[in-house]
Design a protein around this nucleic acid. Structure first.
Lengths: 250, 250
DNA sequence: TAAAAATATGCAAATTCATGCAAATTATTC
DNA sequence: GAATAATTTGCATGAATTTGCATATTTTTA
């Protein structure tokens, strides 16, 4: 295997999981860990990755492997992503928003899933494009600087003309009284349009955002079909959200 | 076996597997490894492949950009970016395509420039969004997996409804006879629409792509307003493109 | 603090490479 | 068609690169 070939695989791996372990790569690529380390050093010198003890990480998030809070959030998002992927079926049209949790979902899509994804996030679009079988359609518009998603009237207009099977959104606050809430008015308008257009809507959110309220309301929580967190559905934190016909807790 | 014959087979092989080993080719084509190496060097000089230790690889274009340590190309793109930025003025509506050269331009935009950029590339959109003063609008559509730009009828339709002051495109081939040419039909359709919509069009391209011809034609080179390369305008390589009223060589 | 894991460094073997040169092939000129 | 020039090719040589291992050092974990 060529050195550059390994480099590409390593970059792709980091792109997909945001981290790599030297030991894993050594097995996967059937070379010594020394060689992997040398590869990682080269890629790091080129500024493409960030080397850390035990492996390497992507450039965007350089927190160490064991930085308590973020590690928990990171792992929580993996659990959420796995649950969300369970909703996907062949030939679905799936509309997804942006945000770190949805990025994790985009990375973990099974390689054999054939489906069409639409998104308002350039980052998610690029990540989805890594999967050969996935057809990616970006809904364009003005790029909101804070949230890195497309917003504005044109996006809402586009959304009115599609009918996705499933829509996946993130949120910054969920509470029994306040419903789903977020911080950015422009983004909220788009999310509302996404919910309107889709047959079913799933909210993905790590548990720490539960029972918090942000400034702008997206919808009542009963308007949602699925709520996905890293906790088991019967967790006490979620008790306030069960009982009704909708949503289903996953 | 003729040399050109080997070259075609090598290119085909790289197209298929994205890599070739000198040893394999030597066996397959029944020539010495020295000859193969010379072949690979030639193809590499023509910019068709990337030579690496042990063989060669295709010129893929990954996300995030995998720096093939092409120091020259990188520096050339810096020069090109500086020249391109000279065309930008306050409050312009500037339409840009995708590709590595245009990414460099997106990175180098002066922090005090207030302008609106539209792009068909998610990568470029994200890079532009780093600049506080720049308003970024993505033209959405189906994301072409190879070029990482949005393509399709909807993009062309959108382009028909805007009138940018300036449009900046890349190209894979420019020659006096063939004009501007590229490799992907879908992408070419979009570029043609971009040129139609814009008041002025600038082509950015490193000099190695000059006097080469790709499969699909974009337009005649005289239809372009500015040609930007890393070379000075009076360079011999560019002599075939000067003299007419358009384009201006920068 | 001690054990374990990961790392950097030097080194040697294997492979790959660039270069010069002569033979073979191809193109050009008369 | 023959002679000449230009190009292409294979081989030999030494240089450069890559890789795995051994060892000493640093970092992490318990």
């Amino acid at each position: 295997m060529l050195k550059e070939e390994r480099h590409k695989i390593i970059l792709k791996e980091i792109n997909l999981h945001n981290k790599v372990l030297s030991t894993d790569l050594s097995e996967q690529l059937v070379v010594s860990e020394d060689t992997i380390r040398r590869d990682l050093n080269e890629l790091s010198e080129q500024g493409l990755i960030v080397k850390v003890h035990g492996g390497a990480m992507g450039k965007t998030f350089h927190y160490p492997f064991n930085g308590q809070n973020q590690v928990y959030a990171q792992e929580a998002k993996q659990v959420i992503a796995d649950k969300a992927i369970g909703l996907f079926q062949k030939d679905m049209l799936i509309l997804v928003e942006g945000g770190t949790t949805i990025m994790e979902i985009a990375k973990k899509i099974p390689p054999d899933l054939k489906a069409t994804f639409m998104t308002i996030s350039p980052q998610v679009a690029l990540t989805l494009a890594e999967h050969e079988q996935i057809d990616v359609i970006t809904i364009g518009g003005r790029l909101a600087k804070n949230a890195y998603v497309h917003t504005g009237a044109s996006v809402i207009y586009e959304l009115a003309n599609i009918r996705p099977d499933l829509c996946i959104i993130g949120t910054n606050g969920i509470s029994p009284e306040g419903g789903l809430t977020d911080t950015d008015w422009e983004v909220v308008q788009v999310i509302k349009a996404m919910i309107r257009s889709a047959k079913k809507t799933a909210v993905v959110s790590i548990a720490e955002k539960f029972n918090t309220v942000q400034k702008i309301k997206i919808s009542d929580w009963t308007a949602i079909d699925y709520i996905i967190t890293e906790l088991p559905p019967d967790s006490p934190v979620l008790s306030a959200y069960s009982g009704k016909e909708k949503p289903v807790l996953l």
